[in-house]
């Protein structure tokens, strides 16, 4: 896959799904741990920033040569750990982590978001596969008809 195609298909799509999921995770975790906290407009930037950090980590999965199934799986695990490390470090350094319980909740949320993004990408690929399979069936039926006519 060319880098441009990879960027558009994986990184950008991952970004938009991540931003949506981060907004949902922030709302849920915030309601549990900091229910009385109020934010200014700058709070709208954090899903975008964390979404960008998470999506840029998708670049770790890019390779010009074809990865084996095992290599691809290992890269996905590294990518997930990298996202966890980067986001938790940023939150810790900016003093936004209230304690271990919040860090654990965030870690689990990041993992769930990572799974959701990959699930959305997989569902998209499954839709492509379905369209392909329908076209394949038509192509094969066309040839089978010729076979029947011959018989």
């Amino acid at each position: 896959m060319e880098f441009k195609t990879f960027f558009i298909k994986k990184v950008l799509m991952g970004f938009f799904v991540s931003v949506t999921c981060i907004c949902a995770a922030m709302a849920l975790i915030g309601m549990v741990f900091e229910p009385n906290t109020r934010f200014g407009y700058e709070a709208y930037l954090s899903p975008l920033i964390f979404g960008a950090l998470a999506s840029l980590a998708t670049l770790l999965g890019y390779s010009k040569r074809e990865l084996s199934y095992r290599q691809a799986a290992i890269r996905n695990v590294i990518q997930c750990l990298f996202i966890e490390a980067v986001i938790l470090t940023v939150l810790f350094l900016s003093g936004l982590l209230a304690g271990p319980a919040m860090a654990l909740s965030l870690g689990v949320s990041i993992f769930v978001i990572f799974l959701t993004v990959n699930l959305v990408l997989w569902v998209n690929d499954r839709r492509t596969a379905k369209t392909f399979n329908d076209a394949l069936r038509r192509l094969q039926d066309g040839c089978a008809t010729q076979e029947d006519e011959k018989a």
């Binding site: 999965g61 199934y69 799986a73 996905n76 997989w122 596969a129 394949l136």
Partner: peptide, 21 residues
């Protein structure tokens, strides 16, 4: 790199890991 397949003998494709099928 190593395979050429016959489309007439292909049952279906399904998504695999990392954008492959």
């Amino acid at each position: 790199k190593s395979f050429v397949i016959n489309l007439m003998k292909l049952e279906s494709i399904s998504p695999a890991l990392n954008g492959r099928f």
